[in-house]
């Protein structure tokens, strides 16, 4: 545990809180994708071995945070907008499968602990890299916290590399990809939202 991971987690929970308060503007399909990644990841981590109380509490806490907004979105037809191109998910999922099978370090479905990255983990990590693109997440603060979460996790990994001499190439590469996807939203957030020049929209 270090301050970067703690701040990253706080940022992620801030993001979930924003989503719980106002889920208008967030695509239902994108939220489904988030659930598809977040739920198996949390459940796998908690069910394959005890890591720490902090880890368990945070991951269990995340599950309603991603599930409840989904319920809100699909119980209210007005929010079920944007991101209608299902092909993105099909192609994205296929790429993730290929990436997950090509670049994994150990050919096992899942593993409790250890340094290797097995199939399901690798798949889920690459899946988030693609679905985390968040092209349809119009909610600015939600995006800001998501981007901050990713950036802080990069700092977390750098910190762990220096303090523990520990490095996981797959996790770091996919983490960098995710953070890059958020860069344009960060740019818009700072140039338009903070300067008060009106509504945020993608270039």
């Amino acid at each position: 545990m270090n301050v970067f991971r703690l701040c990253g987690d706080v940022s992620a929970f801030s993001c979930l809180c924003v989503c719980l308060c106002v889920c208008a503007g967030i695509s239902g399909k994108s939220q489904v994708a988030v659930c598809l990644w977040c739920s198996p990841h949390g459940i796998l981590t908690c069910s394959t071995g005890f890591i720490s109380i902090y880890n368990t509490v945070m991951k269990v806490g995340c599950l309603p945070g991603v599930g409840i907004p989904l319920q809100f979105i699909y119980s209210t037809c007005a929010f079920r907008n944007s991101y209608d191109s299902g092909m993105h998910f099909i192609s994205g999922g296929s790429c993730c499968s290929v990436a997950g099978l090509s670049f994994l370090e150990k050919l096992t479905p899942s593993t409790p602990t250890g340094g290797n990255t097995p199939i399901l983990w690798t798949f889920s990590i690459y899946l988030e890299s693609v679905t985390g693109e968040a092209e349809s997440y119009h909610q600015r603060h939600y995006l800001f916290f998501l981007g901050l979460y990713r950036a802080l996790y990069l700092a977390n990994w750098v910190w762990r590399y220096h303090t523990e001499s520990f490095f996981d190439q797959i996790a770091v590469v996919s983490g960098v990809v995710q953070t890059i996807f958020y860069c344009d939203f960060f740019y818009l957030y700072f140039t338009r939202v903070l300067r008060g020049s009106g509504k945020m929209s993608l270039p």
Partner: peptide, 10 residues
Amino acid sequence: SNEPLYHDEL
């Protein structure tokens, strides 16, 4: 052994 990085992720 060190805890894997992907265990950190929420």
